[in-house]
Amino acid sequence: MTVEEATQLLQAEFGLTVTGEDPKRVDPLHLVATGPNEQWVEVARFVKERLGCRYFVHLTAVDWKADGFEVVCRLENLEAGLGLTLKTRLGTGTSCPSLTGLFRGADWMERECYDLFGIRFEGHPDLRRILLDQDWQGFPLRKDYAVDTAHEPYR
Protein backbone atom coordinates (compact mmCIF):
# COMPACT_ATOMS: atom_id res chain seq x y z
CA MET A 1 0.00 0.00 0.00
CA THR A 2 1.54 3.25 -1.14
CA VAL A 3 0.50 6.85 -0.86
CA GLU A 4 -0.85 6.90 -4.40
CA GLU A 5 -2.94 3.78 -3.91
CA ALA A 6 -4.38 5.05 -0.64
CA THR A 7 -5.19 8.40 -2.19
CA GLN A 8 -6.92 6.81 -5.15
CA LEU A 9 -8.92 4.37 -3.00
CA LEU A 10 -10.19 7.07 -0.67
CA GLN A 11 -10.99 9.32 -3.61
CA ALA A 12 -12.88 6.58 -5.43
CA GLU A 13 -14.79 5.28 -2.40
CA PHE A 14 -15.70 8.44 -0.48
CA GLY A 15 -14.56 11.35 -2.61
CA LEU A 16 -12.09 12.44 0.04
CA THR A 17 -9.05 14.50 -0.84
CA VAL A 18 -5.90 13.20 0.78
CA THR A 19 -3.22 15.78 1.32
CA GLY A 20 0.11 15.81 3.04
CA GLU A 21 0.71 17.81 6.18
CA ASP A 22 3.32 19.68 4.13
CA PRO A 23 1.98 20.32 0.60
CA LYS A 24 5.46 20.51 -0.89
CA ARG A 25 6.61 17.18 0.38
CA VAL A 26 4.24 14.22 0.61
CA ASP A 27 5.40 12.01 3.46
CA PRO A 28 3.70 8.59 3.67
CA LEU A 29 3.55 8.98 7.45
CA HIS A 30 1.79 12.34 7.40
CA LEU A 31 -1.29 12.02 5.25
CA VAL A 32 -4.37 14.01 6.22
CA ALA A 33 -7.96 13.38 5.13
CA THR A 34 -10.94 15.42 6.25
CA GLY A 35 -14.36 13.84 5.96
CA PRO A 36 -17.93 14.58 6.97
CA ASN A 37 -19.18 13.58 10.36
CA GLU A 38 -21.75 11.09 9.01
CA GLN A 39 -19.10 8.99 7.27
CA TRP A 40 -16.73 8.93 10.26
CA VAL A 41 -17.14 5.25 11.11
CA GLU A 42 -17.37 4.12 7.46
CA VAL A 43 -14.15 5.89 6.55
CA ALA A 44 -12.38 4.49 9.61
CA ARG A 45 -13.56 0.96 8.81
CA PHE A 46 -12.43 1.35 5.22
CA VAL A 47 -9.04 2.64 6.32
CA LYS A 48 -8.69 -0.22 8.75
CA GLU A 49 -9.76 -3.02 6.44
CA ARG A 50 -8.76 -1.88 2.97
CA LEU A 51 -5.75 0.29 3.67
CA GLY A 52 -4.49 -2.00 6.42
CA CYS A 53 -4.18 0.74 9.03
CA ARG A 54 -4.86 -1.52 12.00
CA TYR A 55 -2.84 0.48 14.54
CA PHE A 56 -4.94 3.09 16.36
CA VAL A 57 -2.50 5.71 17.62
CA HIS A 58 -4.58 8.41 19.24
CA LEU A 59 -7.79 10.36 19.14
CA THR A 60 -8.24 13.91 20.29
CA ALA A 61 -10.11 17.07 19.40
CA VAL A 62 -9.46 20.68 18.47
CA ASP A 63 -11.58 23.60 19.58
CA TRP A 64 -11.88 26.08 16.71
CA LYS A 65 -14.08 28.41 18.77
CA ALA A 66 -16.85 29.74 16.47
CA ASP A 67 -16.18 27.06 13.84
CA GLY A 68 -16.95 24.27 16.26
CA PHE A 69 -15.01 21.20 17.26
CA GLU A 70 -12.85 18.98 15.12
CA VAL A 71 -12.16 15.39 16.08
CA VAL A 72 -8.77 14.08 15.00
CA CYS A 73 -7.75 10.46 14.91
CA ARG A 74 -4.57 8.83 13.66
CA LEU A 75 -4.37 5.37 12.12
CA GLU A 76 -1.20 3.67 10.92
CA ASN A 77 -0.27 0.75 8.73
CA LEU A 78 2.94 -0.39 10.34
CA GLU A 79 3.84 -2.95 7.68
CA ALA A 80 3.60 -0.48 4.80
CA GLY A 81 4.81 2.60 6.67
CA LEU A 82 1.60 4.48 5.96
CA GLY A 83 0.07 6.90 8.42
CA LEU A 84 -3.27 8.61 8.01
CA THR A 85 -4.75 11.39 10.10
CA LEU A 86 -8.53 11.50 9.85
CA LYS A 87 -10.33 14.69 10.71
CA THR A 88 -13.97 15.57 10.95
CA ARG A 89 -15.83 18.74 11.86
CA LEU A 90 -18.76 18.53 14.23
CA GLY A 91 -20.37 21.78 13.14
CA THR A 92 -22.36 23.46 15.86
CA GLY A 93 -22.98 20.30 17.88
CA THR A 94 -20.81 18.17 20.16
CA SER A 95 -21.90 14.77 18.92
CA CYS A 96 -19.62 12.37 17.06
CA PRO A 97 -19.95 8.66 16.19
CA SER A 98 -17.83 6.36 18.32
CA LEU A 99 -14.99 4.20 16.95
CA THR A 100 -15.12 1.71 19.80
CA GLY A 101 -16.74 -0.86 17.53
CA LEU A 102 -13.61 -0.85 15.36
CA PHE A 103 -10.78 -0.24 17.80
CA ARG A 104 -10.78 -1.27 21.45
CA GLY A 105 -8.15 1.39 22.06
CA ALA A 106 -10.65 4.07 21.18
CA ASP A 107 -12.51 3.45 24.42
CA TRP A 108 -10.32 5.40 26.82
CA MET A 109 -9.29 7.92 24.17
CA GLU A 110 -12.89 8.88 23.62
CA ARG A 111 -13.54 8.99 27.35
CA GLU A 112 -10.61 11.39 27.72
CA CYS A 113 -11.89 13.45 24.83
CA TYR A 114 -15.31 13.58 26.46
CA ASP A 115 -13.73 14.44 29.80
CA LEU A 116 -11.73 17.40 28.57
CA PHE A 117 -13.69 18.63 25.54
CA GLY A 118 -17.22 17.50 26.27
CA ILE A 119 -17.69 15.72 22.96
CA ARG A 120 -20.37 13.04 23.20
CA PHE A 121 -19.43 9.89 21.31
CA GLU A 122 -22.59 8.17 20.17
CA GLY A 123 -22.47 4.44 20.73
CA HIS A 124 -19.69 4.49 23.30
CA PRO A 125 -20.38 1.76 25.88
CA ASP A 126 -19.16 3.63 28.97
CA LEU A 127 -18.91 7.36 28.45
CA ARG A 128 -17.74 8.62 31.84
CA ARG A 129 -15.03 11.03 32.92
CA ILE A 130 -11.68 9.29 33.03
CA LEU A 131 -9.17 11.80 34.46
CA LEU A 132 -11.16 14.35 36.41
CA ASP A 133 -13.56 13.80 39.25
CA GLN A 134 -17.03 12.65 38.38
CA ASP A 135 -18.51 15.81 39.91
CA TRP A 136 -16.33 18.18 37.90
CA GLN A 137 -18.15 21.11 36.35
CA GLY A 138 -17.28 22.09 32.79
CA PHE A 139 -14.72 20.84 30.26
CA PRO A 140 -11.25 22.31 30.88
CA LEU A 141 -9.64 22.12 27.44
CA ARG A 142 -12.37 24.14 25.75
CA LYS A 143 -11.27 27.60 24.78
CA ASP A 144 -14.12 29.21 26.69
CA TYR A 145 -13.20 27.47 29.94
CA ALA A 146 -11.82 30.12 32.28
CA VAL A 147 -8.60 29.04 33.97
CA ASP A 148 -9.70 30.51 37.26
CA THR A 149 -12.98 28.64 37.33
CA ALA A 150 -13.74 28.05 40.98
CA HIS A 151 -13.67 24.50 42.21
CA GLU A 152 -14.49 24.40 45.87
CA PRO A 153 -13.12 23.90 48.44
CA TYR A 154 -9.49 23.94 47.41
CA ARG A 155 -9.23 26.93 45.12
Binding site: L132, P140, Y145, V147, T149, Y154, R155
Partner: peptide, 13 residues
Protein backbone atom coordinates in the same frame (compact mmCIF):
# COMPACT_ATOMS: atom_id res chain seq x y z
CA UNK B 1 -0.45 27.48 39.10
CA UNK B 2 -2.54 28.47 36.10
CA UNK B 3 -3.59 24.94 35.32
CA UNK B 4 -7.22 24.07 35.81
CA UNK B 5 -6.49 21.11 38.07
CA UNK B 6 -3.86 22.34 40.56
CA UNK B 7 -4.38 23.39 44.15
CA UNK B 8 -2.62 26.73 44.44
CA UNK B 9 -0.58 25.81 47.48
CA UNK B 10 -1.02 22.94 49.89
CA UNK B 11 -1.73 25.43 52.69
CA UNK B 12 -5.24 25.60 51.28
CA UNK B 13 -5.66 21.99 52.34
Amino acid sequence: RHGYHVVKGVDRV
